[in-house]
Design a binder for these strands. Sequence first.
DNA 1: TATGAATGAGTCTTCATTCAT
DNA 2: AATGAATGAAGACTCATTCAT
Lengths: 196, 196, 196, 196
Amino acid sequence: MIRQPIKKSSIAKKNLIIEKGFELMCEKGYYNVSSVDIAKYAGVSTGIIYQYFNDKKDIFLEGIKKYSRSILFPTIDLLKNNFDKDNIRESIDKVLDTVVLNHNMSFEAHKQLMAMCHLDDQVAEIFKTNEIKTCEEISYVLKKRGVTLEKLEVKIHIIMGLVDNYCHEVVYHKHKSIDYEAMKREIIDIIVNLLV
Amino acid sequence: MIRQPIKKSSIAKKNLIIEKGFELMCEKGYYNVSSVDIAKYAGVSTGIIYQYFNDKKDIFLEGIKKYSRSILFPTIDLLKNNFDKDNIRESIDKVLDTVVLNHNMSFEAHKQLMAMCHLDDQVAEIFKTNEIKTCEEISYVLKKRGVTLEKLEVKIHIIMGLVDNYCHEVVYHKHKSIDYEAMKREIIDIIVNLLV
Amino acid sequence: MIRQPIKKSSIAKKNLIIEKGFELMCEKGYYNVSSVDIAKYAGVSTGIIYQYFNDKKDIFLEGIKKYSRSILFPTIDLLKNNFDKDNIRESIDKVLDTVVLNHNMSFEAHKQLMAMCHLDDQVAEIFKTNEIKTCEEISYVLKKRGVTLEKLEVKIHIIMGLVDNYCHEVVYHKHKSIDYEAMKREIIDIIVNLLV
Amino acid sequence: MIRQPIKKSSIAKKNLIIEKGFELMCEKGYYNVSSVDIAKYAGVSTGIIYQYFNDKKDIFLEGIKKYSRSILFPTIDLLKNNFDKDNIRESIDKVLDTVVLNHNMSFEAHKQLMAMCHLDDQVAEIFKTNEIKTCEEISYVLKKRGVTLEKLEVKIHIIMGLVDNYCHEVVYHKHKSIDYEAMKREIIDIIVNLLV
DNA sequence: TATGAATGAGTCTTCATTCAT
DNA sequence: AATGAATGAAGACTCATTCAT
């Protein structure tokens, strides 16, 4: 049924479908985009889609595999570039700002990805794997930078959750009654406490 | 267009549609359930649905308004019944267990609600309102029980996030490499630190 | 099944349904008006409609029987009041003006009635009967006013058709390229020729 | 949304839908035919209909554009082939017979077309345009055959109306009390009078 | 390989009519 | 005699997927 493209141009075409399809689904929403839309947007025929993919969801899954990591867990790169054991507070501060910035840049995509994550087990599985991998990498980076703690991975998981929550709070829930600067300080405190 | 039921039996019928419809959508998934499915499941005709609701989403929204609070934010009742200032650690422990239990009881419902929360602004709005209200109520309870802290609401928000994350971690992500008991202890530590 | 109202108030109610229902159907179009609409517009319950009428069309038919004559064939009354054998030209002129005026006053109703006349055999039958009756009456009036001609009824039929055509031309087709005053003169000439 | 067929077979398919759909609607009545009916009758899928047409009415309109001229206004061809200035009476006689014959051949179609003409402005517009065009063509033919009259177009309009009325009288209203042969003679007289 | 026309099951929605009260 | 809530069959329309070319 499903063919693996061999020719260079075919491989490019398959990748184009993933790229453009994922882009469109992230922007408009999985359920608001039809296969015909995707084909048109990618500039290919509808038929070819079903030679490289089982169904519409397949495209989305491939898209996630390929792009979601950079959308959802850019933390690792941030840390690699910014983490300074002797200046944890500022490192974390920078990470928080960057994560918020990143979320705002792909606002709709994030919403769609989170939604699909809850609606589809395969999507959820990919996210889970991603998260674990990210956690391991962060762990590796931290260790390299001199952080030696018990239960490090558990702590990193908690920290990742905290960062995420803070981010969602700021990006989606933004409401007057909350003092977000204070929240940020509290969260940094918690993280610092966990890492020392 | 949309009629408000006046007769007792009609009100009951409308409520039945909300109850059964919401149940079905939570169980099978919003996008996997049609209005005909809902009508059949509720034992009413398809026509009547369109006399009381604009569309499927309307039913879902009403369902959320009616039930989601008890599904998503039972924390408040837990606290009311369990919080003991001189024994915070155990109080929190109990809350965590109960939240996990509660999530497991309506596993699919939670997933659907979270998904819709990301896909639909109206749903998101209801959640946001609920969360603020819950936060305020928890704040009120804690104050009554003798917790007097600066930035209490900010802290409660963070705690609610931590609880939620822990819960999701346990319920959805459950994987071998993580020591969930350790995670629980860490989280309790953080919460206790925040509250003293 | 169908009940004949006996009580004075019931008879009034049935008539109200015919009156208001017919009015609404003429205005909005038979296919754009539902029984519920009619009931609401007449201020009665939907149920009662089906005690006095077999179906929606019944109301329309009764409406036609009751009102269409005055809408469609007011010619007879015009003639009764205006026909002057020694001044035919002016009589006809007045009739034409009045018929056009009458059409314009119930523009939508006319269109609906003509349409239904073509769509439904029962409606067509009523129209046919009406036309014959009108023709006979006109014939009677003309004779009384001293018009004695062979094949009078045939001529009257032709005249009625001419009047109708002129009217439709003016009311519906109105376009620049045609000189309607000239047309009127020609038609009057023809009619006068027929009647002398 | 709406696609224009390019491939030969697709064009044929679109035309088939118009042809069969129009045929069915004319036969059974516009309001008694569903898109599924049309698809079945034309031997195509329901989906394809919505790729070539906005809705049912679209098919009807295309049908009218394609076929109505030959159904409704064949007079012009009749005249072209039969009109003889020195033998007007017989020419007209032949036209009348042919028009009646033609109406009887597509009895239901005529009724539907007339009905839709009153119910739908787009249909009405097409008819109006057709009529004007026909009138001009007849005018052209008559002039060529030596008929030179003032207000010729007005007269042709009146004649077309007379022919139509006679035809409807014969085809739809047929009733004992009228002497149709006499009516025919009268109408021919009127027409001849107009043309000399 | 690639095309894009075609499919048809499935969805939402309406409304003439019935029926419990 | 009257109500108006309820019914459910039928219609319009969509879209993931297939298939002839």
